[in-house]
Each structure stands twice: as structure tokens, then as C-alpha cells.
Design a protein around this nucleic acid. Structure first.
Length: 503
RNA sequence: GGUCCAUUCGUCUAGUGGCUAGGACGUCAGGUUUUCAUCCUGGUAACAGGGGUUCGAUUCCCCUAUGGACUACCA
């Protein structure tokens, strides 16, 4: 196989959708697996849709995901410029080559004229197609006398350059994922290659750019499949060998049907973008929602691809190692937020307590609590396995930092008995006398005390938990009191007895 | 409407003519946990339908249905 060079080529029109991230990921995995080069190219040939900040967002997103760009705007490279608007003149030259060859032509029809032809056709239940059948009736350098269209050109009338699609020809091509596909050119139209604003359209620009950049494999979304016949024809007209193509299946919304969109995320409460999008109509991101980038990537990689083994957890290196295009599925995948959560849980379990404690400390600070990192590490160890996100640590440990101000009613009803105050008073005296107030010594002392007096362990422990936590939840109770310390424990017993005895 | 693509448990998927159709998430049940969660064990659940081809089809072919993408001087 020739030198592998692949590109991810988004247009900077807004935040990068996770479908786009997956396309980038598969390109990246393919490049790394085959010792190739991963290129980031910005396709900004639509000046009207350009959005400030989108380029940076794209680069930052890839960086967060751990997708390393080899050639691009920031990285440089020998095949630049990597932003298409910086190559306007070059694209124009290639459009001219096609016109000179007779495979493309100038067209002067205005957008308004085309629009009315389309709506007329629609009224008649048909579709207007600018093709071999229709182009003679339109205003272009094929239908008009040469003197006339040259005159238009000289006078500076706006025009576009269209591809001259053959009238009736079977175009056959191969997709790495879908196999052979044949389309007849009669169903295709004379696509605009070069716009009146001096910019190429996607169709022309990406063909030329892929050629200049020596792209070996085009791995892109399924939405491009219908225009692949045109692209194949362009390669033919230029006399170039086309690269290999792989069209990735779409990412579908979790419920119902259709392509995953920003609206689905808003509606169902999960992000559709990797990072928070801070401009205009803002959108939340996986990073800010507390997902780990490696968990996010792991989840995304398995949406539409699988290695054929039963392995679920993959590091980026493992993904690179096992990736291959022919194990990419053909059908669209529905995105499942629940599974994304599960992946994060798995990854959190493998994070070190120190790392988690550091992250949790920042979060704690925003709530006005402080503790040294060693103590927080101990706390993290106590609740780690019950959480999926760092932010969950707080909801599992809030009572470590503050005494309960309310007591769960159902729990009180079930566990607060008439003799609870008396038992807890006894317990308090017992704890007061313990010098080494650690989880283990407190546990030992209390166990001996209950056995000696023949008390019901369950009744005591549940009432005890109630005054310490405020409800029936949380880690091993002795770990809790060991962490909050003797003084706080005694205070909470007092408070609990006072408040709950009034019930 | 036209063109193209797709179709295995609720979801992600394995499977390439002969299997009790496997795994993961979810869900349900039991166990562990003197609480809750975690965790462990087990269960539930699928080849869209109809024709072929074949000794035999989830697997190959055709049709239907359903879903999706595209159908701009957007990418």
C-alpha cells in the first residue's frame, strides 16, 4: 500500500458534533495503525457560514480527545496551506483546466431564476435538475453563442462554473465499507464547481486539495455517498487516480429516528459536542459534564466499529492496534447516553485516588469547603466505586462536610424508635471515652458494647447513621465517623437526639 | 417525488450455509453489604416480512416494508 495520508476536513461553521469527532477519530486510528499521516484541513469555502471561534474549537476538541494532528494550520507541513480560503487562486486554476477541456462550462443563470424553475417543477410534482436534458435551455456557455457569453464574461456579469455531467453513463466505484456501487449519470446534475463569489464549492475544492495533499484514503460521513459519483467523474476529468473511499454510517438519536442533533441533546440532557460552545447559541460539552476524554473516545470508537473480540475497554493505543476499516459497520448507530455513563464509571475506577482528589478539591472549593489532599484521598477511596463522575463524589460525601440539617422522613419513621435516644446517649458516652478515635477502634468498642448488653446491632447502627448522615445512605458508618472525627461525631449525636426526639 | 445506503435482543454489536444465535449496556431476580450504592451470580430479550437457491438458510439472490442520507452558487 502506498503511503497512508488521511485528512479530517471540517468546515468552521460552529461546534464540532460528536459524529464529526468520530470521523476524525477513525481517520486518526487508521493513520496511526498504518504508519500514516493525519491531516487537519479547514474547509472554509463558504464565507457566509464562517463562524468566529470554530477553528479553535475544532483544534481544542481534537486535542482534548487525544487525537494528535500531524499536519495542519498550527502544526504546519509541506502540503499547505491547510485552510482552503488561503488557496482561492489555486482552485480557480483547476476550474479553468476543466473548462478548457470541455468538461465544465460557465453558467449565468441567477439564483432567482433557478429558484423559480425549482418551485415551478415542484408544483408540477417534479424535480428540476440542471443536467444534459435541461442545460441547452439555460443561460450558459454551452447554449449561448460564443460571442454572447464571452461578452457577458467581459462585462463582468456574475457566473458560476458547472461540471458537464455526461448524459447517460454508468459510473461505478468502490467503497471500502459498502462495496461496489453503480450510478447512472442521467440521475446526476451539473453541479456548481466554482461560485460567483470566487470560491470553489466543496466538490471542486476537496478533490483538488486531496490531490495536492496526496490523500490516500478519504474517510468521511455517509452523507457524502450520493455525491461520490460526481467526485469520481472529477477525478476522471482531471486524469487523476482517485483515493480509496470509506463512507461511515451515521450517528442516530437515542430515541426515535434520524440523525443525532443538538436538539436531542438539549431535550434529553446529554451533550452532543465534546466541549462547551461559548458563542451565540451555547451548547454543553462532554468535557464540562465531567466525562474523561479517554472514556469518551472509547465509547465513541465502539459506536460503529468493533474489533470482533469481547473487549470493551480500550486505551487509545489499543484502539490504534486493533482498528481496521473493514470492521466498521454499515448501518447507523443509535447513541446511548447510559452506556457513555458506564464507560466513564469504568475509567473513573482506574483513576488514582490522588488524581480524583485533586479534581474533587477544585469542585469542593466552589462550594466553600477545604481539606488537605491527603484527607481527600481517603475520602475518595471511600466512595470511588459508587460514582461515575467526579462531580458525583460530592453527592456521595456532602454529609462528610456538614451535619445534616434535615432528616429523611421515611428513614426516621422506620429506624427512629422510642429507645433510640437512650441508646445513642449511651453510645455517646462510650465514644467520648475512646482515646484513639479511628474507624477500627470505634467499631471494635461499639461491637463489644452491643454484644455485652445484648442490644440489637441493626437498630443501633441505623439510628446512629441517621443522626450522622441524616438518611440511610453512604459508606461504612465507622469510616464516616473516623473521617469527621470525634468532636463532630458527638455533636451530631447530640443534635440528632434533640431534633428527632421532638417527632 | 427521484437517486443512493441500510435492516440480529430496548440499545451497541459478534456471527459470513449446519451454533442451545455469543458478548456489553439497560432491565429483572437472588447473593454480598448491619444503610444506600458498588460488586458478584443468574434470568429476560433478536435474525423486519414474503418469495426463491440449497439436503439445509441469520448468512446467497429477488421483491416488499421500514428507516436514513442526499437532492443549494452549504459543507
Amino acid at each position: 500500500m502506498k503511503q497512508v495520508r488521511v485528512r479530517f476536513a471540517p468546515s468552521p461553521t460552529g461546534p464540532l458534533h460528536i459524529g464529526g469527532v468520530r470521523t476524525a477519530l477513525y481517520n486518526y486510528l487508521f493513520a496511526r495503525k498504518n504508519g500514516g499521516t493525519f491531516i487537519l484541513r479547514i474547509e472554509d469555502t463558504d464565507q457566509a457560514r464562517y463562524v468566529e471561534g470554530a477553528e479553535e474549537y475544532i483544534m481544542e476538541s481534537l486535542e482534548w480527545c487525544g487525537i494528535v494532528v500531524d499536519e495542519g494550520i498550527r502544526e504546519g507541513g509541506n502540503f499547505g496551506p491547510y485552510r482552503q480560503s488561503d488557496k482561492k487562486a489555486i482552485f480557480r486554476q483547476y476550474a479553468d483546466i476543466l473548462v478548457d477541456k470541455g468538461d465544465a462550462y460557465y453558467a449565468f443563470d441567477t439564483p432567482g431564476q433557478l429558484e423559480s424553475l425549482r418551485s415551478e417543477a415542484e408544483k408540477a410534482g417534479k424535480t428540476f435538475i440542471y443536467n444534459a436534458e435541461k442545460r441547452d435551455g439555460m443561460s450558459n456557455s454551452l447554449s449561448l453563442p460564443e460571442a454572447e457569453w464571452r461578452d457577458k464574461l467581459d462585462k463582468g456579469e456574475p457566473y458560476v462554473i458547472r461540471y458537464k455531467m455526461p448524459a447517460n453513463e454508468d459510473i461505478s466505484f468502490e467503497d471500502l465499507i459498502r462495496g461496489q456501487i453503480v450510478v447512472n449519470s442521467s440521475t446526476l446534475d451539473d453541479k456548481v464547481l466554482f461560485k460567483s463569489d470566487g470560491m470553489p464549492t466543496y466538490h471542486l475544492a476537496h478533490i483538488v486539495d486531496d490531490k495536492i495533499m496526496e490523500i490516500s484514503h478519504v474517510i468521511r460521513g455517509e452523507e457524502w455517498l450520493p455525491s461520490l459519483p460526481l467526485h469520481i467523474m472529477l477525478y476522471r476529468s482531471f486524469g487523476w487516480d482517485p483515493p480509496a473511499f470509506a463512507h461511515l454510517p451515521l450517528l442516530l438519536k437515542p430515541d426515535g429516528k434520524g440523525k443525532l442533533s443538538k436538539r436531542d441533546g438539549d431535550k434529553m440532557g446529554f451533550p452532543v459536542f465534546p466541549l462547551f460552545w461559548p458563542y451565540g447559541d451555547t451548547a454543553k460539552g462532554y468535557r464540562e459534564d465531567g466525562y474523561f476524554p479517554d472514556a469518551f473516545i472509547n465509547m465513541l470508537a465502539l459506536l460503529g466499529w468493533n474489533p470482533g473480540t469481547e473487549q470493551e475497554i480500550f486505551s487509545m493505543d489499543e484502539l490504534i492496534n486493533s482498528f481496521s476499516i473493514d470492521r466498521v459497520g454499515k448501518s447507523g448507530s443509535r447513541f446511548d447516553p447510559e452506556k457513555a455513563r458506564w464507560f466513564n464509571h469504568q475509567y473513573l475506577q482506574h483513576r488514582s485516588n490522588t488524581e480524583l482528589a485533586l479534581e474533587f478539591r477544585d469542585l469542593l472549593r466552589t462550594r466553600g469547603y477545604h481539606d488537605d489532599i491527603v484527607k481527600l484521598e481517603k475520602l475518595v477511596a471511600l466512595v470511588k466505586e459508587r460514582v461515575s463522575f467526579v462531580k458525583d463524589i460530592w453527592t456521595q460525601t456532602d454529609f462528610f462536610f456538614k451535619a445534616p440539617d434535615t432528616y429523611d422522613q421515611d428513614a426516621v419513621k422506620k429506624r427512629w424508635k422510642d429507645d433510640s435516644p437512650k441508646l445513642l446517649m449511651e453510645l455517646k458516652l462510650l465514644l467520648t471515652d475512646i482515646l484513639d478515635f479511628s474507624a477500627s477502634s470505634a467499631e471494635k468498642a461499639i461491637n463489644e458494647w452491643t454484644i455485652k448488653n445484648g442490644y440489637n446491632t441493626g437498630a443501633i447502627m441505623n439510628a446512629f447513621r441517621l443522626v450522622i448522615v441524616g438518611s440511610l445512605r453512604g459508606p461504612h458508618l465507622f469510616d464516616i465517623i473516623g473521617w469527621i472525627g470525634k468532636e463532630e461525631t458527638l455533636k451530631r449525636i447530640d443534635k440528632g437526639i434533640t431534633v428527632l426526639s421532638k417527632y
